[in-house]
Nucleic acid binder design. Structure first.
Length: 758
DNA sequence: TGCGCAGGTGTTTTT
DNA sequence: CACCTGCGCA
């Protein structure tokens, strides 16, 4: 047996060796999925399959990169470089770049990210004089995007009864019309948005049989990672590409399907089994990542979902530590708690920063953790959020670069035609745009004939100077490399100078970002041609790939930093210690996804994903008060907390301030003398003072047995009567009437209360 | 044309 | 809170 098969278990080995025909690998969390995929590809190459004929599609650049590196390592040569491994979007854009002209696009078509696309759409909504309050860009864009992911063109959308009805119902009957205008505008701009990369790939394969044949023949083996996250467009493309050889291997886990908002459908898993005569199904059920406690908790949580494929994930690892549950008063306290816990565990167990991850539901939650980590000098890195390429100054620079290779791109032109300010204002821009639309010419073409359009004086000169500047740099495209061109346009456009002049801290950072962009182009330009393959290092090729890149420096992740990211972004990763934070109703599950079974189950799968990232330790935390939109809001602890098996959860809090164990039984109540009680009561209730001075005999009591009607003392609020109790085991909240101090909701986990009378 | 200010509005999740 | 938009003014 080849030695690379030795470390595999029976099912893994079977999956590697089953190379011909349709194969579906149902791979539970941490079951060695990537190992199987990479070994499988390595095995194919080892057995004489030409690496150029293997296609592997992933969802993230990171996953693609990791697979490529692992295969390279396994083979010990550079064969892996020839593999087609990448995200759906990047592989398709690479193919579309070659075939673009068949579809009427320029080869140097621009790829619009979501911000660009929304900006185009917004202009169209304005042009059509629609009410932007009703036709909200985000809403309209989502409708269009969802349609495209289901392979609906605007024509089909307009003809679709259900879609029309839905839009009529939501009082937005003109979305079909906007869809049409948007599609036509993007086409005119020589641009594709993310969804177009899929749609156009599909159109290419269905409308051009010779192209279909070419790629069907080329890719003898097709592998799809994270198959549960594919949408309808992706499903059909996969099916088309694999139809000749039918050597299709998909790997997925229904329990980790968390992208339905992007059109992903678990239905594709079931459909796959029907599409081929003889589908082999292999289940990988042994988890090699997490402790038994962690795995059992995750398994238990997921049983609350109705829709799932039966599978039993097990481990032979030891139970390990219990999951730690922590409730704090505010989101800032939650941040402090996590930072403290990291310090403590680093000291106690020799963990490093990089052994910790903080996972949250929404990007906005990162703030409190950033602050607390910074305060304790813990190095961290945030993934996601605003990426390098989404920054304004970088987008401006990129817009210039885009115009150099694709003058059709109106969106980019609009962006930079008056930045830095050169006297071409909104009035002028609107006029140019209007002329472009009515004469059915591109924005750029109108600029070229500015004089005959009727522009005069300073405006005309400004336009002509702008055109001349762009053309001059364009003239260098053949002679100079991408970096030299980028440097030149940065200089002559004045953007580099403009930011250099800004001496504020932010201005300096922006200037540095421009330099970093230049460096990245330089690096790209200078990367040597890979052996065997002719690699294009043009500006056009550079631009194409960066829009699909999530972040500028994904590769320098190995620093010793605590990782902060959304749970979505954490999929596929693993860490020794994981903090899953913000476990509150309305946050997690999100308020957007609580009122529908399917949505809620997806939130639960998300929770499952979060827990199963951890190898050794899991903390779960929630805050009862949190800043949102500037004001403090209160949330109940998440229902998911109650779904954790209590015997696997430790609610003992190791951090200060010392808190009660909500799972602990009743305790010895303190019994103050009745004399004390009367005096203190009088004092508090007759005083208008806002600060209460705690009684001399103040002593924190166990409040787990607190009941309505009891009288208590709070250090700051004074004496009060318990009027109601709510909340789950982990987090009881008492409403207490403190008389002049008003009625307060008090979290018993946190607050120090003395029971005055039971 | 550009800037400053008031007012409104938004937060899932991502290629 | 933080960002964006629209408006009024110089």
């Amino acid at each position: 047996m080849q030695d690379y098969l030795l470390p595999l278990n029976e099912q893994q080995r079977e999956a590697v060796l089953y190379t011909e025909g349709a194969l579906m690998i149902v791979a539970g969390a941490g079951s060695g999925k990537t190992k199987v995929l990479t070994t499988r590809i390595g095995h194919l190459i080892n057995n004489g399959v030409d690496s150029f004929r293997i296609l592997a599609l992933t969802f993230t650049n990171k996953a693609a990169k990791e697979m490529k590196e692992r295969i390279e390592h396994m083979l010990g040569n550079s064969e892996a470089r020839n593999l087609y491994i990448g995200t759906f979007h990047s592989v398709f854009s690479r193919i579309l770049r070659v075939e673009a002209e068949r579809l009427g696009y320029p080869n140097n078509f621009t790829i619009y990210d979501t911000d660009d696309a929304k900006s185009v759409l917004k202009n169209i909504i304005k042009e059509q004089n629609l009410d932007e309050k009703i036709y909200k860009v985000a809403y309209v864009f989502n409708r269009i995007s969802a349609s495209k992911n289901n392979l609906y063109t605007y024509k089909e959308y307009q003809a679709d009864h259900a879609a029309q009805q839905e839009d009529a119902r939501s009082n937005r009957p003109l979305i079909g019309q906007l869809f049409e205008a948007y599609s036509k505008r993007c086409f005119k701009n020589g641009a594709m948005d993310f969804d177009d990369l899929l749609v156009n790939m599909y159109i290419l394969l269905t409308n051009f049989p010779e192209v279909l044949a070419k790629y069907q023949h080329k890719f003898r083996y097709v592998m799809i990672d994270e198959y549960q996250d594919t949408n309808l467009a992706q499903y059909h493309i996969i099916k088309l590409l694999g139809a000749v050889h039918e050597n299709i291997c998909v790997v997925g886990d229904d329990a980790q399907s968390i992208y339905s908002f992007r059109g992903a459908s678990m239905e594709n898993i079931f459909q796959f089994q029907k599409d081929y005569d003889d589908v082999k199904i292999i289940k990988l059920e042994q988890n090699y990542r997490s402790s038994k406690t962690i795995l059992d908790a995750a398994n238990q949580v997921i049983t609350n979902n109705k829709n799932q494929i039966k599978k039993e994930l097990w481990t032979d690892k030891a139970a390990g530590e219990k999951i730690k549950l922590v409730g704090t008063f505010t989101d800032n306290d939650e941040g402090k708690f996590v930072a403290d816990a990291i310090i403590e565990h680093k000291l106690r167990n020799h963990y490093k920063n990089k052994d910790f991850a903080i996972l949250y539901r929404t990007n906005a939650q990162s703030r409190a953790f950033e602050e607390s980590l910074r305060r304790l000098n813990i190095n961290y890195k945030i993934f996601g959020g605003l990426s390098f390429y989404q920054r304004k100054e970088v987008k401006d620079y990129v817009a210039y670069l885009r115009i150099l290779v694709n003058t059709q791109d109106e969106e980019s032109l609009r962006r930079i035609i008056n930045y830095p300010a050169r006297g071409i204002g909104t009035t002028t821009i609107n006029k140019i745009s209007f002329e472009a639309q009515t004469q059915n010419k591109t924005f750029w073409e109108i600029l070229l004939e500015a004089q005959s359009i009727g522009f005069k004086g300073a405006t005309l000169t400004a336009i002509q100077d702008f055109v001349l500047m762009i053309r001059n740099v364009q003239g260098m495209l053949e002679k100079k490399n991408a970096y030299e061109i980028a440097f030149e346009i940065g200089k002559v456009s004045g953007i580099v100078k403009d930011l250099h002049a800004d001496k504020t801290v932010e201005g300096l950072a922006r200037y540095e970002n421009l330099q970093e962009l230049q460096n990245s182009i330089k690096e790209y330009t200078e990367t040597p041609t890979e052996d065997g393959e002719v690699v294009e290092r043009s500006l056009g090729a550079y631009l194409q790939q960066i829009t699909l890149l999530t972040d500028a420096n994904e590769n320098e992740e190995d620093g010793d930093t605590v990782k902060l990211m959304t749970i979505h972004a954490s999929k596929g990763l693993e860490f020794p210690c994981v903090f899953v934070v913000g476990l509150e109703e309305n946050i997690f599950p999100s308020s957007m996804s609580m009122y529908d079974r399917e949505d809620l189950e997806e939130e639960r799968r998300l929770f499952y994903v979060a827990i199963t990232r951890a190898k050794e330790k899991v903390w779960i935390s929630f805050a009862s008060n949190r800043y949102r939109f500037g004001s403090l809001i209160q949330n109940e602890p998440s229902r998911f907390i109650d779904e954790l098996p209590t015997q696997l959860v430790d609610a003992n809090l190791s951090s200060k301030p010392k808190k009660q164990n909500p799972f602990a039984g009743p305790s010895k109540p303190a019994s103050p003398s009745s004399a004390d009680k009367t005096i203190q009561q009088k004092k508090v209730f007759s005083s208008a003072s806002t600060t209460h001075v705690a009684s001399a005999n103040f002593k924190e009591d166990d409040t787990s047995g607190l009941e309505v009607g009891m009288q208590v003392e709070h250090q700051r609020f004074g004496f009060g009567n318990v009027t109601s109790l709510e909340g789950a085991i982990a987090n009881k909240i008492a409403t207490i009437d403190f008389g002049t101090m008003g009625e307060k909701k008090i979290m018993l986990n946190y607050a120090k209360l003395r029971i005055v009378r039971g």
